[in-house]
Design a protein around this nucleic acid. Sequence first.
DNA 1: GCCAACGTTGGC
DNA 2: GCCAACGTTGGC
Length: 156
Amino acid sequence: MRYWLMKSEPSECSIDDVLAMPKQSVAWWGVRNYQARNFMRDLMRPGDPVFFYHSSCPEPGIVGLAEVASRAYPDETQFEPTGKYYDPKSSREAPRWLLVDVRVKCKTRLITLDELRAHAELSTMRVLARGNRLSITPVAPEHWQFICARLLGLPS
DNA sequence: GCCAACGTTGGC
DNA sequence: GCCAACGTTGGC
């Protein structure tokens, strides 16, 4: 089992938007980066725990706990010619972009980016790395445990 | 809206 | 396969 952090812009799809969906689950559409795609395709498995993160907003940070809810499958938005996620180089026969379903388990208090950076124990988190632009990053087990136990006060 | 960082594209 | 130009991400 692997741990993940997945970024979503709340103006596009917030954690509340997902909680309002049937089964509190959403297809994680719109990933157009090969490394992030490969994480979904090669490493993500149903049940993997996920930090739900709000990005490109006034207070970026972790806002909830979620889990991977499917294996990877083609992202329909790549086939929609009028959509902003359309990829003319992709085809149904050889889909270029994949996604997984993500199910929100609960909201948490907001753990801001500033708070994450303030803890030396988290200094090597991939999402905090200078210049990181990946919308999906692996989370080391010790980082997951630290955030859940020390920052959220959840029983381990 | 700025801009650092870095991924992608395409000419050679 | 190199690398300059360009595009995108995302915090600030």
